[in-house]
Design a protein around this nucleic acid. Structure first.
Lengths: 189, 189
DNA sequence: GTCTATAATTTGATAGAC
DNA sequence: GTCTATCAAATTATAGAC
């Protein structure tokens, strides 16, 4: 057994609650007390695990980024099919939206970036940077596309998916995201 | 003279300041005091013009939407060229980013939508709805595209541009937006 | 229209007992 | 690790003088 069924640590529970709140309404819309109540402890106990609110923001963003990239797998695994590569990538976002009707952590934080603690903003930047790297690599592995063209198309796909989450949620219509994702799969780079 | 050089009313000054702050960091990142200080009055005076903070949010979003659509002009004005229609539409967003390095009001509010007063969220939704209408109409006027296909491509373009603003700002690289906009002009619907 | 004053609540954070 | 207690500051908003 690779996963010994470990129960979530309190630290994880705090991050779970904070992530949910960030994805629903943003960094400035929740308090450490909100998190505490969601977990079933007191605000002071949250501060024991994370001295400042910014520490929570950084930890949520780091964990989210690592999970996201882990779920994507190796960029070289999609040889020979650009459309499938994009479909696979879009699915990572689609799952988030479908599962709990929530946006990408970094779509929300990116929109608020001018009002975030510096280190939270920095980790948000790194999410986008690393995703562009992954997508560019996967596109180059799955078609004869050159590096510059791949990077350019990767940027378009990333931007369109993040934007689609926002428009989809704002309109209260999940099919909006699906249509954007489908459209991207059929666009030539 | 169509514009009699009217000085901005205090009401306008308040909305100008609030709009700047929303576009920089979001609805939950500014206070009525912040707005008051930016305008050079006291917070109580802001509440004279707008009883609640939500009233400011609604007024900013309404004004922004009207201006945006007015600037776009008539959707029928781009007969015969889909690429130019998309370029014209992208320019509306590009100007915002270039002028002051700031996002679209509704890109930010849309990302935070779960934490907004209901009426602010509703007007955010209407911005997207009306933009999709405009773009769909303009695309149908400028090419032989059918209604369903036009609406679908309009959604892709809108999502990609809103997302591009966020990724561009987060990476601190204006050229990201430019590359997404250029890429969209060359995509076939 | 703008101000002072103030109320009521929330927020991020700390000290120290258990 | 979690709690109670507490703090200083900030936030939204109102009453009433000028």
């Amino acid at each position: 057994m690779e996963k010994p069924e470990a129960p979530p640590s309190r630290r994880d529970e705090i991050l779970d609650a904070a992530e949910r709140m960030i994805r629903a309404a943003g960094y400035n819309a929740f308090s450490t007390r909100d998190v505490a109540e969601a977990v079933g402890i007191k605000a002071a106990s949250v501060h024991y695990h994370f001295p400042t609110k910014a520490d929570i923001g950084v930890a949520v963003t780091r964990r989210y980024t690592e999970r996201f990239l882990l779920e994507l797998g190796e960029p070289a695994a999609f040889k020979g099919n650009l459309g499938k590569t994009i479909a696979h990538y879009a699915d990572a976002f689609r799952r988030a939206l479908k599962r709990d009707g929530k946006l990408c952590v970094c779509a929300v934080l990116g929109a608020e970036i001018g009002g975030l603690p510096a280190d939270v903003g920095e980790h948000t930047r790194m999410f986008f940077e690393r995703n562009l790297e992954w997508l560019t690599g996967a596109m180059m592995a799955s078609s004869r596309i050159g590096a510059a063209r791949a990077r350019r198309h990767a940027t378009l796909v990333l931007a369109a998916l993040e934007g689609a989450l926002i428009v989809s949620k704002s309109l209260g219509d999940e099919s909006v995201f699906a249509r954007v994702a489908d459209g991207l799969e059929n666009v030539r780079a």
